[in-house]
Structures are given as structure tokens and as C-alpha cells.
Design a protein around this nucleic acid. Structure first.
Lengths: 366, 366
DNA sequence: CTGAAAGCGCTTACAG
DNA sequence: CTGAAAGCGCTTACAG
């Protein structure tokens, strides 16, 4: 009550020490639970902290401790497109980021999020700046070259998402191979579709490359006729999927019996385009997705897709990163299982699988 | 080339200075574009930085500068519910956060995101810790009491979302009043529905309170019969909306002609529940939402709702906060305009407004 | 148990 | 233009 409101300047640990009549070392100790301060000392410090509403400065702590308790996740901000705020980024990345955040929370870490535009220049420099603010980096795919990633990894631990591990960085991804294999078999073997196409995602996406590769191998292997090539090049978003279909139809092309889309967003665009032309899904053309984003079950018909544990992907990324930050640990690569979700867009009725066949492929089937 | 890889320990500005044969002051200057270093000095520093892959430590910079160039956004993590990762949080908050991030980017700021569980204890302490790591705080609604907010605001600038400004904190929100008024008029006057209900959001939500208030005033004022009360209490998520309908139906209640939902998520649940009972929307019961989340246009029928500029809400929050951080500026309160989006769940056909009436109410209509 | 002091890695007046 | 030095607000051995 004697103290005038010293609202000017920031409150420091010195103010607290002064107010409590102890040294700054004691204040620090009780605030951090170090040592065994006398009960009275603790009391006095706590009271001073409370009365002054003191909050320790994070930058000073970090500098002193060598630990910021912050990790960053960097991702690509989608370009603008017809379906505005509905590109893959929004739906998919936000869930990953949420997973990171939840896992970080458990260890008392916070997460810094930063998006980079596709047209931004000097992305590497931007990310380097961010690296200086955190203890570790989680990088979504298609952000940086392997060389640039290696350079960053020399500064802070790095885990990439949907990429490949490098000598200096770790990677977490989903099991595209098993998921795509099960999906194609369902379409070709269970449903007996003889012509299928893969509407691809961004060409340079590692996930897309893996899915395309397995799709082609599996479909051809099963004797189905496969349509691929530049006319089937999408970009992971709804607008891309829609325009592929529109172009094909405008060119008078005959659609395959089933269209396997690189992700759910693409499938959404495809279904829109098909509906616009009066083509029935799944009666005339079956459509499938990949991801199982929340909206997938609300489409008409509900979308058959491969569920990735998206949030868990983020959580795992943090855990691997944390293991490296807090010790030498951290697996260089972890692959998460996926699950075939059979709904109706593939031709199955009422959400039931057509033939009796387990829908789950999480690790055990084949 | 003489230098052995000194991978141990972190690279500091001293290493760079040594490598370049200049003082740390010079290194700092060229790195920050201060003063006018000789061309040769700049060269040597830049080369050393490049060769060593030096990245300045953010904590040290922040401590020295008194600026962290980071703001935090704190929000409530939804509880678990039937519709898993589909609660209001996911859809709505992520878009806000993205808006914050995009605006922050423009000023070279990064954003720290942190969720607090509904059951977490000592939320105030958690947020205080975060406050120590940033230059400013953006708080979603229903996180803290006015007192707690005031205390925080003594430490760093604070802007709340969908709340009310306080002497020490600022607030950004959408114009619920105008939006709800237009919606109710469309239902009661344009469509002529005589009985309407408001399926509310979380009781303590300021947005919900404002919407409920205006709904009741406007509907009663127009002579419609209004259903309200505890049986119409939802919680902003799909499961809440669904269970209200199910309970009502199980109790043999007669549904009103139109159900105005507190938000789109609730409407989604309501439509599911209605469909499950074979009740046709909009023919038997009209349903409307609020927010215009991406999924709204994909529902069947497409959802009539009030569009809030969600991403802009986040961007504005950052801008107001930034004005305060970088100067004394920052409006204490900003209210963003909303827009009535007429689709088909209200009873309009094919997405066209029934009577000729401007759909937009962004500020100019009444 | 507690305090004085050094050190974390930067930036920035202050002198040359 | 450039360097030596102080200072940002903490934490933590090191002595009492």
C-alpha cells in the first residue's frame, strides 16, 4: 500500500525480491520449485508475486535456461482458389497442428505456427529466423529442399511431415501404401470395376507420389484398365478436382468407372463437377477420397476414403521432436497406420461393406 | 576451411565476429541493417554468416530489444463429443487463428497458439506463463473472468474476441445484432413462419447471449410465436443440436416451423437428427445456422446462415493488438459487419431468395 | 537455507 | 565507420 503504482517499465524479479525482502535467487527458486526454501521465504515470495502480479519474462528464462519450451510448425498457405477457404490447408493442416499443440501441452511446451505463401521468396531465410525462436521445428511437406532442411537441422532438431528422414532430420508419415492398396482392391476386386483413374494431388507431394505409385501397381496388377497422365493432374484442392473433370468432359472423354482422388478435397470437387453435369455417383462413376476429413461423411453420397490419423500425425511429430530436444532420442522415421473407411461413394449401400470383408486394415490385414 | 566443425554448443554472434574478423557490434549491425557499415565489412559478415549457417537467438534478441515479435492466441479446446473432431472449436477457431497468423506475418510477427481444456484448472496461471513469452495476447471468449483479464492486461496488451472491452483490454466481435435481425425477418416476414425457436449455444457465450436476445425481441416483435427455454439449450456443437431435437421428439413435443440455430455446427446436428426421424428440411421444418463455415454449403439442403468474416475477425484482432504494442494506439472495440446468406434450408428454392430482397445487410440495410 | 555474482546471446549508446 | 562495454531479466553453481 506504500508502493505507488509503478506501472512504468516492466516488473522484474528484482521488484519481487525487493518487495519480499529476499534475494532474486530466492525468488527464482521458489518460482521454479528448486532447492528447499524455508516455508516463510516461500510465503513471502508468493505473496509478493501475487500482489505485484509478477510474470517472469520468457525470453530471459529461455536465454538463461537454454530452453524456450516452444516448437514451431511451418506449413504452406494455399493459394487462393474458387472454393476460397476450403483448400487442403485449412482442413488438413489445422488438424495436424492441433495434434502438435495437444501433445506439446503435455510437456509444457507451446507451439508457434507460421505459414509461408507459395509465392513467398526466401522461404529458407524466413524459416531460419523462426528456428532462432524455438527449440525444434516441425515442417510440413514441400517447404524446403533436402539441402535446406539439412542446414536447418544443424541449428535445431527438425522433423518433417510426409517426407523422408535425412541423416540429420526425422520424419513422420502415414502408411499410404497399405491404405491405397486396400482401396484399390476394394474397387477392383470387391466391386469389380474394370476401369479406374487416379486424380493426383500436387505433383511434388511425397504423399501423392506414393499413392500414385501404389495405385498404378495395384490396379494394373489386378487387371484393371488404368487412366493416368497430365489430364488427371489435380492439386489437392476442390477446384483442381472439379476442373479436371470439367476439362475431361468438355473434351468428350469417357470417364472411368471409378475415380480415386488423391485426397478428400479433390473428391469433393469431383463430386461437385459430376453433379453439375448430372452424372450420378456412385451409379455411373464411383469416387473415393483419402484423409477422411470431417466433411467426408456429410457429402452426398458419403465419401469412401482412407482415414489417416491426422491429429495423431501431429502429436507424433511433436513427440519425436521432443525426444530429440530433451535427450538424444527420437526415431528417425515413424509410419502411422491408416484405415479404409467404406461409405457409399464407392458403390456400397447404406454404409455397409458390399462383400464381407474387414474394413480395417490397420496393420493386420496383408 | 581451417575451422573444424564446431557442432558442439550453439553458434553465437561471437563466432561470427571471430570468423569475419570484426566486432560483434558490426555483426549485429549488418544483420539488422543498422548504421552504414562499409561494403567490405558487410561482405565479410555476410560470408561468415553464410559459411557458419548462423541464426541469431530469438530469446537473446527479445531480451535485448524488449520485443519478442510474437503474439499468443489462446482458445478453448472442446470436450470430446459424439462428432469427435467436429466441434465448434475445430471449424471456427482454426479460421480465426489463421486470420491472426496471416495478419501477424505482415508485420513480421509470429503467433503462439495455446488451447486450454474446459476441465483444466488454474487457467489464469497457465495464460500468465504464456503472457511472459509474448508481446500481446488474443483471448477467445469464455476463457477468463473480467478480473483475470484485467490482471493480464497489466502485463501485456490484451484483445478479447467476442467479449466486451474493459478499461484495460480491447475487444473485436461481429455484428450479431444486425445479422440475427435480418435472419429472423427473412423467416418470419419473407417466409411467413409463425412459430420459431432458437436453439442456443453455450449459455455463457457472449455471442450466444446477443443472438438469443435479438432473436426473441425480433420474433416476438413480428408477432411470431417463440419457443425458448431449457429444452432448447444447446452447446454450439453438432451433438448438442442433435440431442435437443431428439429429446424434444421423444417427449412428443411439436416442433416449430423454423429452428434458428446458434451456429452452423448446431444446425448440422439438428439436420442430422431431423433426417434420422424422417422429418423434411425445409418442407416440414426450416433450419438456419450462423457463421457460414465451409461445410455449410455442402449440407443437404444447403444451409441458410449468417456469414461472419471469421478470418478477418482474427486479422483484425491482431491489427488492433499490434497498434497497441507498437504505439499507444488500438481502438478499444471494433465490430465487424456480417451478411445474411440465403440458401435452401430456410425454404428458399435453388439458392435464390424467395422475395426480392437484398441478401446483404453489411451495414447498409436497416 | 540463502545471497552475491557470473553468464546466457544479443543490441545499442558512447567513444574513438 | 567501428569496437569496448553495459545492460536486457533470468538461473544456477559457489560460498557462506
Amino acid at each position: 500500500m506504500a508502493e505507488p503504482n509503478k506501472t512504468k517499465g516492466t516488473l522484474t524479479i528484482y521488484d519481487v525480491a525487493h518487495h519480499a525482502g529476499v534475494s532474486i535467487a530466492s525468488v527464482s527458486r521458489v518460482l521454479n520449485g528448486q532447492g528447499s526454501p524455508r516455508a516463510e521465504t516461500r510465503e513471502r515470495v508468493m505473496r509478493a508475486v501475487r500482489e505485484l502480479s509478477f510474470v517472469p519474462d520468457g525470453a530471459a528464462r529461455a536465454l538463461s535456461n537454454g530452453l524456450k519450451e516452444v516448437v514451431a510448425v511451418v506449413f504452406r498457405r494455399g493459394g487462393e482458389n474458387e472454393f476460397q477457404d476450403e483448400d487442403e490447408s485449412l482442413l488438413f493442416m489445422d488438424v495436424i497442428n492441433r495434434g502438435v499443440e495437444v501433445a506439446a501441452q503435455r510437456q509444457g511446451f507451446d507451439v508457434l505456427i507460421s505459414s509461408v505463401g507459395i509465392t513467398d521468396d526466401n522461404v529458407a531465410a524466413r524459416i531460419a529466423l523462426i528456428a532462432g525462436k524455438v527449440d525444434g521445428l516441425i515442417l510440413h511437406d514441400r517447404l524446403l529442399s533436402a539441402v535446406a532442411i539439412a542446414r536447418l537441422a544443424g541449428i535445431v532438431p527438425v522433423v518433417t511431415l510426409a517426407g523422408s528422414p535425412t541423416p540429420s532430420s526425422m520424419n513422420v508419415r502415414c502408411d499410404n501404401e497399405t491404405g491405397m492398396r486396400a482401396l484399390v482392391r476394394h474397387l477392383v476386386i470387391d466391386h469389380g470395376y474394370r476401369s479406374v483413374a487416379y486424380l493426383s494431388g500436387t505433383a511434388d507431394s511425397p504423399d501423392n507420389q506414393a499413392r500414385a505409385r501404389v495405385f498404378e501397381a495395384e490396379a494394373t496388377g489386378s487387371g484393371a484398365q488404368v487412366q493416368v497422365g497430365p489430364s488427371w493432374q489435380g492439386n489437392y484442392n476442390a477446384a483442381g478436382g472439379a476442373s479436371v473433370i470439367t476439362s475431361l468432359l468438355d473434351a468428350g472423354a469417357e470417364l472411368p468407372r471409378a475415380i480415386v482422388c488423391a485426397n478428400d478435397q479433390t473428391a469433393l470437387g469431383v463430386m461437385h463437377a459430376l453433379a453439375r453435369r448430372g452424372i450420378k455417383v456412385p451409379d455411373e462413376v464411383a469416387v473415393t477420397g483419402f484423409d477422411d476429413v470431417p466433411v467426408a461423411r456429410h457429402l452426398h453420397p458419403p465419401l469412401t476414403t482412407v482415414r489417416q490419423p491426422i491429429q495423431e500425425l501431429g502429436a507424433t511429430a511433436f513427440e519425436v521432436l521432443y525426444a530429440r530436444i530433451s535427450a538424444a532420442g527420437g526415431a528417425p522415421e515413424v509410419v502411422l497406420p491408416v484405415e479404409l473407411i467404406v461409405r457409399q461413394s464407392c458403390g456400397c449401400a447404406g454404409g455397409a461393406t458390399l462383400p464381407r470383408r474387414p474394413a480395417s486394415i490397420a496393420g493386420h490385414e496383408i
